[in-house]
């Protein structure tokens, strides 16, 4: 019998360290629901992470888990997966961990297209260190290091994964729980590197400074500002304008480039 959702949690580690209203728990739940649907075994699955709020997630998952250094989770995961391709490898990371300090490892893991699932909890901020701006902090947003509003253009992580070569790339939000779970599962089913960007709320470090004080404010904001990728493409094809303050959600790539570390039974 495959393990139930409860069994995938390291229940003795509760309560967790995430703030009230944090979206990371939603992303972990979606991930573990996908894992249950996949029918994976706990002892054949490895969760790996770097540093940051997102990276504390493997500490709450019952598998063998590797909580590594800032930005390097994908490089550690490459070692694990290439040494033992029979393992299912899942990486939890965040926008700062993945796209700032770990940017080089991100594009190279996508290029190699190593058969693992990478889930980025993008809260658009460095939460663990108290709310500094990240490469995904929207232009104009207030953080402790962008007190007059962020001025740097942002990374589109899902597009970056596509450009760098990942076989699967999708973006959803913590509002889109069902779609997010489905996307994670679809990623897990796709050989090669699967990248799932989960936009998530950080009421403590982001919302508080950006007039979205309640967790529900941020979730509503994500709901109202996300646009289906298919709709966005249609608008573009029809020559209609796509509202500036929206971001696309959906599946950005599902393809079959040559991959590494795919286990052959």
């Amino acid at each position: 019998m495959t393990p139930s959702l409860e069994e995938w949690y390291r229940q003795e580690r509760m309560p967790h360290i995430f703030c009230t209203g944090c979206g990371n728990g939603t992303v972990i739940n979606c991930t573990l629901n996908a894992v249950v649907e996949m029918g994976w075994e706990i002892d054949n699955t490895i969760f790996i992470s770097g540093i940051g709020c997102s990276s504390r997630a493997p500490g709450y998952v019952a598998t063998d888990s590797l909580h590594t250094t800032h930005g390097r989770a994908l490089a550690f995961a490459t070692g694990v997966k290439m040494a033992r391709p029979e393992f299912n490898v899942v990486v939890f990371t965040g926008d700062g961990d993945l796209s700032a300090i770990g940017g080089n490892h991100f594009i190279h893991a996508c290029r190699r297209n190593i058969d693992m699932t990478v889930i980025c909890m993008n809260n658009m901020i460095y939460g663990m260190t108290g709310g500094q701006g990240s490469p995904c902090t929207p232009v104009g947003a207030i953080s402790t290091t962008t007190p007059y509003g962020a001025g740097e253009p942002v990374f589109d992580l899902a597009e970056l994964a596509v450009a760098a070569g990942a076989n699967y790339s999708a973006r959803w939000t913590t509002y889109h729980v069902k779609e997010l779970t489905k996307a994670i599962k679809a990623g897990m089913e796709t050989p090669g590197l699967s990248f799932i960007e989960a936009m998530t709320q950080c009421p403590t470090s982001f919302g508080r400074k950006n007039r979205q004080r309640q967790p529900s404010d941020m979730i509503e904001h994500m709901k109202n500002h996300s646009i289906l990728l298919s709709k966005k493409k249609r608008l573009e094809e029809e020559g209609k304008s796509v509202p500036d303050d929206t971001f696309a959600v959906g599946e950005f790539a599902r393809r079959n480039r040559p991959a590494m570390g795919v286990y052959k039974k």
Partner: peptide
């Protein structure tokens, strides 16, 4: 950085 990371990851397997 990635080299030593991969080495440590592999060692845990």
């Amino acid at each position: 950085i990635a080299s030593i990371s991969s080495v440590i990851g592999a060692s845990w397997t």
